[in-house]
C-alpha cells in the first residue's frame, strides 16, 4: 500500500498549503521565539515543505486505531511514596542563573 518511493516523491512536490508570513509570525509568537525578518521566509518555505511531507499520514487508514503515546504498551506510570527526597540546593542551582539577588531569580517587572 505504501512504499518509500512515495515518501521520496514528496521531495519534489510543490507545497500545496504554503504558510503565510502571518502564520509563521503567529507560530513564533506561540513558541516565544523572536525571528528576524530574514528568517521568516526561510521558515515559510521549510515549514510548508514539512507540513506537505507529514501530510502523507492522511492516506493511512486509522479507523478504530488507538493512538500510541508510549513505546512500551501496557506500561503505566509509577507512583512513589510522598516523601521528601531532595534537600535545599538553591545556591548551587542559582550558579547557573543569569540574574539573581538575595536568593531570588530576577526578571523584568511583570505588574505595572
Amino acid at each position: 500500500m505504501y512504499d518509500f518511493g512515495l515518501v521520496f516523491s514528496v521531495l519534489h512536490a510543490i507545497p500545496t498549503m504554503a504558510l503565510t508570513r502571518e502564520q509563521i509570525a503567529s507560530i513564533a509568537t506561540l513558541a516565544r521565539l523572536d525571528l528576524t525578518p530574514s528568517e521568516i521566509p526561510v521558515y515559510q518555505d521549510s515549514l510548508s515543505r514539512i507540513l506537505e511531507f507529514i501530510g502523507a499520514l492522511e492516506r493511512a487508514d486509522t479507523a478504530d486505531v488507538t493512538p500510541m503515546a508510549h513505546p512500551l504498551p501496557g506500561l503505566t506510570q509509577r507512583l512513589r511514596p510522598d516523601l521528601v527526597t531532595e534537600t535545599d540546593h538553591h545556591e548551587l542551582y542559582q550558579q547557573n542563573a543569569p540574574l539573581t539577588a538575595a536568593g531570588l531569580y530576577l526578571v523584568p517587572k511583570v505588574i505595572e
Binding site: 493511512a60 493512538p67 500510541m68
Partner: peptide, 14 residues
C-alpha cells in the same frame, strides 16, 4: 489532524 493521527499510525507501525 496531525498529532493524534501520527500517534494512531505509530500504533500501526508498532
Amino acid at each position: 489532524a496531525y498529532y493524534l493521527k501520527a500517534q494512531r499510525v505509530r500504533s500501526l507501525i508498532n
